[in-house]
Design a protein around this nucleic acid. Structure first.
Lengths: 138, 138
DNA sequence: TTTACTGGTATACTCTGTGATACTGGTTAC
DNA sequence: GTAACCAGTATCACAGAGTATACCAGTAAA
C-alpha cells in the first residue's frame, strides 16, 4: 500500500468526481483525504447538527419551530447545539426586544457550505427507504 | 411553518440539486427530508464508519493495512466496526486458509452507494483547511 | 534467538453525548 | 383564571461509543 489510490475499482462516475479535486492527471493522496474526512466528521458529527442546519437553511427561524421540525430532538439538545453553532458562526441569533421577546435564528453563508453534503445524505436516505420497500415486496 | 420549503433563500445551485429529487415543479417535503437525513446519519454515524468505507473502497484489503490508513483508530474499534459492516453487507470478509492465513476485506456494491457523500465530505474538509490557512495569513 | 509481522480478542476504564423530567418567567388567548 | 404558547435552563441518570493496554497463536525474516 502506498499513498496513491488504485483507481481500478472505481466507477467512472466516482472517478470523474475526484477529478474535481485533483484534476484529470492528479494523483490522489489517501492520507490527505482521510484527514479531510475526519475533519468534516469532527465538525458535523453527532445526531443533530446536520438536521438543525437543514432546518434553519430551510427557513425555520424560531426555537420551537426548529424543535418541531426535527423528530426526537429535546429542547436541551437543541439549545446546546444552537449555542455551539452560534459560537462557530454557523448561525446567527437575533433577539428583538418585545414585548413579546422574539428570538430568530438564521443561517450564515458558512452554514450553506454543507448544502451538498446534506443533499447527498437526503438522497441516500430516500433511495435507501425505496430499496427497503422494494425488497419487502419481493 | 408548513411542510413546504421556502426556496427564496436557496442558492440557484442548491435549488437545482433538489430538482434531482423532486423534479422542477415538485414541492419539497420537509418531514420526509429530515427523516431521510436522520436515516442516513443512523447508518453511517460515529467516528469510524465513513473512514473505514473510504479506506476499503480505495483498495485497502488487509486488517493492518486499513488500520494504518486511519489515524487514531484502535484495533478494537476497527474490529468491531468491520464485524458490524460485514453483517450489514457493506463489506465482505474472505479468509484464504494458509499457512499463512490471510484475511481480505472488500467493498460491496452497496458500500459504493456512499461514494458521493464521502466525496462531498472530503471536499468540504479540504476547502475548510484551505480557508483556515488563508485566514491565518490575513 | 529475538524481533516483527499477521489478525485479531480480553479487560478495564473514561467520558460525553444523549435522554427524561421538571421548571421558570413572561405573554397571549379563551 | 387557567390553559397554552414562547425560549429556554436545571438536574439527574445512563448506555454505549470510544480509549488504553495487554495479550494470544501463528509465520517469517535477521
Amino acid at each position: 500500500m502506498g499513498t496513491e489510490h488504485s483507481t481500478e475499482n472505481m466507477t467512472p462516475e466516482i472517478k470523474a468526481m475526484y477529478e474535481v479535486i485533483y484534476g484529470i492527471d492528479g494523483k490522489r493522496n489517501e492520507a490527505r483525504e482521510i484527514q479531510a474526512l475526519q475533519d468534516t466528521i469532527y465538525v458535523i458529527g453527532g445526531k443533530w447538527k446536520l438536521p438543525i442546519i437543514n432546518s434553519i437553511c430551510n427557513g425555520n427561524k424560531r426555537f420551537r419551530e426548529i424543535e418541531r421540525s426535527i423528530p426526537g430532538i429535546t429542547t436541551r439538545m437543541l439549545s446546546r447545539e444552537l449555542r455551539e453553532m452560534e459560537l462557530n458562526k454557523l448561525i446567527t441569533r437575533t433577539v428583538s426586544p418585545g414585548p413579546p421577546v422574539l428570538v430568530e435564528y438564521a443561517s450564515t453563508e458558512y452554514c450553506w457550505s454543507f448544502g451538498r453534503i446534506i443533499f447527498e445524505m437526503i438522497k441516500w436516505g430516500i433511495d435507501h427507504r425505496e430499496k427497503l420497500k422494494k425488497e419487502q415486496i419481493v
